[in-house]
């Protein structure tokens, strides 16, 4: 954990996760970039569009016996809707996300894009135009492209491992594994982030400190 003082408003803040590089000041909504020794503030984050999510910053849960807490959120928009990506600080230090879309939750963990000098995906991400049905190799498994979405960041809060400013555009590619499980590749300005995940039921996450929901 690293504490900081917001350069814009002087309010106290902290990074819970060592992999976070960006945060939204909880007091003044300034966007804050983490640097080696200090932090830099730039611009303000607008309020996130309202939703009925049962999650909030600080919600805790357990996944496969490992405790996590939600420390950041990115609201992603695309042509036909929006979804939440919750950044998890996990007890074992992995970069995890809890995706919340169309009433389903999926736990995803980031995979390295490069291993032993070899790229995880044999495509030039700067020029690749993925098509549904296309097959690609990810490690020992074959994955099939099932969906390609042009996404726009609608806003973010808390702390995150990348700069999620409003209007950030990316391509989100959903991949289905031949042996079950799914992966997601996000391409932003020619560089990719790869996630592998699975669907999880609400009851299996043992969540506490969830968001109050009026009437529910």
């Amino acid at each position: 954990m690293r504490e900081y003082t917001c350069p814009a408003c002087g309010g106290p803040g902290k990074f819970e996760s060592s992999v976070s590089v960006y945060a939204v000041c909880p007091w003044c909504k300034s966007m804050i970039l983490r640097r080696d020794v200090d932090v830099e503030a730039f611009g303000k984050m607008a309020a996130l569009p309202p939703d009925m999510s049962p999650l909030q910053l600080g919600t805790r849960g357990v996944l496969d016996g490992v405790a996590f807490s939600l420390v950041g959120r990115v609201k992603m928009g695309w042509r036909d809707g929006a979804w939440n990506e919750w950044f998890m600080a996990t007890a074992d230090g992995r970069k995890g996300w809890l995706a919340e879309a169309q009433g389903f939750f999926a736990a995803c963990f980031e995979l390295p894009m490069e291993q032993e000098g070899r790229s995880a995906i044999n495509r030039n991400l700067a020029t690749w135009k993925p098509k549904p049905g296309e097959k690609i190799n990810l490690g020992p498994q074959v994955y099939q492209v099932v969906d390609v979405k042009q996404t726009t960041c609608l806003g973010s809060e808390g702390e995150l491992p990348y700069l999620a400013n409003r209007g950030r555009k990316a391509v989100s590619i959903d991949l289905d594994g031949s042996q079950g499980g799914f992966a997601n590749l996000e391409i932003h300005q020619g560089s990719g982030r790869l996630y592998q995940g699975r669907y999880v039921a609400w009851d299996d996450l043992a969540m506490t400190d969830t968001r109050p929901l009026e009437g529910w």
Partner: peptide, 28 residues
């Protein structure tokens, strides 16, 4: 954490007739 807004249905006015519409699954 406590300051987080509770989730609630969104009420909006229909741009066609002005009637109140309750959005029960706001965000979805």
């Amino acid at each position: 954490e406590q300051a987080a807004d509770p989730g609630r249905p969104q009420v909006l006015a229909c741009p066609a007739c002005g009637g109140a519409i309750t959005l029960r699954a706001a965000g979805h």
